[in-house]
Write a protein that binds this DNA or RNA. Structure first.
Lengths: 138, 138
DNA sequence: CTTGAACCTCTAGTCACTAGAGGCATTACA
DNA sequence: TGTAATGCCTCTAGTGACTAGAGGTTCAAG
C-alpha cells in the first residue's frame, strides 16, 4: 500500500490529476488511512497506467470510461474497444490532414518576408488580411 | 453600417464570439446606435476577417493580439510577424509528428482484434494496459 | 516528541468559446 | 400607427481536462 504521491511518481501523473480522475469516476475511490489519506495497491497502479496511456493516445475521459466499462465485460470487450480505437484513429487522421494544410500555408507565409527584415508590405500580415492570397483551403 | 448579425453572416463568426473578441481587445469597441446596439463598417469587417483567418490557422488569441499590434507599427511589422508565424509553424509540425506516432499505434491496436469479434484477450485493451506492447514512443 | 514534508478539501482559474435567462430595440407588415 | 417577430443587449454559468492556491490535518523520520 502506498500514498498518492508515490503513485504519482510511479505513473508520472500529477497528484491533483489523480484526484480529478477519481472524481470523474475513472479510478475507484481509494481506500483511506484512519487519517483520511488515500492508499493504493497494484490494482490502482495498473488502472492509472491504463488511463494515462489512453490519455497519451488522445482518448477522451468519456472514451476511457467506455473502455473501462468494456474491460469489465470481457464477453463484449473486443468489438466495442476496437470501435472506440478506430473512431479515435479517424479523429487523429482528420487532425493530421488539417494540420498539414496549415503547415503548407504557414511555410508559404513565413517565406514571403524572408531577407527583407523591414517592409511595409509584410506577407504574413497581408496573407492573414486576405484569405484569397492562400493557395489552398484550410 | 450594419449590425452584429450581419457581420456574423459575412464573416461566419458567431455573434457571441464577436462580442467575446471585443471583450478580449481583438476588436475595437464598436459604435452603438441610440438603442445601444453595435454597428460595424468595412474596417470592422476586415479586422474580423483577419482574426478569423488567423484563428483558422491556429494562432492563439494572444498571438493575434501581437500581430494586430505589429500591424499598427509597419516599421517593425515584418520581422515580428514572421517570427510569430514561424513559431506557429513549429507548433504545428510538433503536433503533426506526435499525431503520426499516435496514428501508427492506433492502427496497430485496431488491427489486433480484427476478425475475432469476441475475445477475452482484446488487443486494444491489452495494449492500453501495457505500454510495453507499443512499438514506438508516443 | 517535534518538525517538515506530504496530504486533505474546497474554490477559482485556464482557453476559446457556447448556452441560456431575462429584458430592450428594430423592422416588416397590416 | 400598432403589433408581432426577430434580433440585440448584458450577465452568469458551463465545456474539457486539468492546474494553482488557501488553509488546515496527518504522517514519517530523527
Amino acid at each position: 500500500m502506498f500514498s498518492i504521491g508515490e503513485l504519482s511518481k510511479r505513473t508520472k501523473v500529477k497528484v491533483p490529476t489523480i484526484r480529478y480522475y477519481e472524481e470523474m469516476g475513472l479510478l475507484a475511490e481509494a481506500e483511506r488511512t484512519s487519517g483520511n489519506q488515500r492508499r493504493y495497491d497494484k490494482t490502482g497502479l495498473e488502472r492509472l497506467s491504463f488511463i494515462r496511456h489512453a490519455r497519451d493516445l488522445g482518448f477522451s475521459i468519456e472514451a476511457i470510461l467506455s473502455l473501462i466499462e468494456l474491460q469489465e465485460h470481457p464477453d463484449r470487450s473486443c468489438q466495442g474497444a476496437t470501435e472506440i480505437a478506430k473512431s479515435q484513429l479517424t479523429d487523429v487522421r482528420a487532425k493530421i490532414k488539417k494540420l498539414r494544410a496549415l503547415e503548407k500555408e504557414l511555410v508559404r507565409m513565413s517565406k514571403g518576408c524572408e531577407g527583407d527584415g523591414v517592409s511595409e508590405d509584410c506577407y504574413v500580415l497581408a496573407s492573414l488580411a486576405d484569405h484569397n492570397l492562400c493557395h489552398r483551403e484550410h
